[in-house]
């Protein structure tokens, strides 16, 4: 199954979840998301959970997590 993570193609097994695509993309990025420093968005910009299901061609973007309590 081919997934786009930050506009890069990664190959994952069929039935993979968001976490699998991130690990295939980059261990560093995976750990940043695990630690809460970054969040994962789908192709439409919605946040998705690490155990979210993926489909062939799904697009993911990893972005810095919004700081809590900061000024708007």
């Amino acid at each position: 199954m081919t997934i786009q993570v930050n506009n890069r193609t990664v190959e994952v097994f069929s039935g993979a979840q968001v976490a699998d695509a991130l690990r295939a993309y980059s261990q560093v990025t995976w750990k940043q998301v695990q630690n809460g420093g970054k969040v994962v968005l789908d192709g439409a910009g919605h946040e998705v959970a690490l155990d979210g299901a993926l489909a062939e061609g799904s697009r993911l973007q990893v972005k810095r997590a919004a700081r809590r309590g900061g000024r708007a």
Partner: peptide
């Protein structure tokens, strides 16, 4: 495990499939 499948870098022709 799905962790090994996605974290380890090794050439394989079959992308594999989750057994759910």
């Amino acid at each position: 495990s799905s962790y090994v499948a996605s974290s380890y870098r090794f050439a394989h022709r079959d992308p594999g499939r989750s057994l759910n």
